[in-house]
Design a protein around this nucleic acid. Structure first.
Length: 260
DNA sequence: ATGGCGGCTGAGAGCCGA
């Protein structure tokens, strides 16, 4: 007997501001798991009750003002929760992993990197290197692994509205793209590219310059599946609708369905 | 496209994101 699991990711850019949109999206889309990034809330302010009333439980690793990740799920995680990359003593809350039965879900808010000549860029690459080492181990323990979230990397030219203009910019620079490819080389698959997709599909649009209306965007939010899971993926989508709402996040939710 | 938006804090204007 097989079951379908719908797994989604959304950088909400403040869960305090976006909670009504998240509740509405959960009701409409009925994901089994929704990974959130940039909740920007300390844990004692996490809105657990309204999410529970909507039929979801939650794990969360937050901090004041910046970063913060959460995993909303219909069924509670079965354990093995982590909130840091091993060996990384980092106060920034960017990682939340948990097992859901045979499935392991790792929710990431990868550092932005600011600019290729900045210290933050070095931190981003070091972070991705740590992540890579961790995933080598994690794939051995959990063959059914999902790695999803805001990667802050557009992997390919077709993921960027104007690749020439962006070629050496943060989010699309060669070292970042190489770090992303190195994750795929571990045996992970970008589920979005398993299926035919509309031209110029993006998951983020700048708030400025009417970027969304003009579809000036980047695809930087991803759902990666291990080699055991990728063949079970049935579809992968970006839902642009919430980006068109009043007071939107600058990111759209992304989702993938698996038949397990 | 990069000043141009929108979140945060703390009560101003500045930092940060992507």
């Amino acid at each position: 007997m097989s079951t379908t699991m719908k797994i989604a990711s959304w950088n909400v850019n403040s869960l305090r501001v976006r909670l009504p949109q998240v509740l509405d999206w959960l009701q409409r889309q009925q994901p089994d798991i929704l990974a959130l990034q940039e909740t920007k809330l300390p844990d004692d302010q996490f809105p657990l009750e309204p999410l529970q009333e909507a039929g979801y439980t939650a794990l969360f690793a937050g901090q004041k003002s910046y970063n913060g990740v959460a995993l909303l799920s219909r069924s509670a995680a079965s354990g093995a929760t982590i909130t840091d990359l091993p060996g990384m003593d980092d106060p920034q809350r960017r990682v939340l992993g948990a097992a859901f039965g045979e499935l392991y879900v790792l929710n990431l808010y990868v550092p932005n990197g600011q600019a290729p000549d900045s210290d933050k860029f070095d931190y981003k690459l070091a972070w991705l290197n740590r992540l890579n080492s961790f995933l080598v181990e994690q794939l051995q323990h959990y063959p059914r692994l999902i790695v999803l979230g805001d990667f802050n990397i557009a992997p390919e030219e077709r993921d960027v509205h104007d690749p020439k203009a962006w070629e050496n910019s943060v989010l699309f620079s060669p070292p970042e793209r190489a770090a992303f490819r190195a994750l795929l080389d571990l045996g992970l698959t970008d589920t979005f590219r398993l299926f035919p997709q509309p031209q110029a599909s993006y998951s983020w649009w700048d708030y400025r310059m009417n970027a969304f209306r003009r579809n000036i965007g980047l695809r930087i939010d991803h759902i990666l599946a291990s080699s055991a899971l990728a063949p079970l993926c049935r579809n992968a989508t970006i839902d642009k609708a919430p980006r068109a709402l009043e007071r939107p996040s600058d990111h759209a939710p992304v989702a993938a369905e698996f038949t397990l």
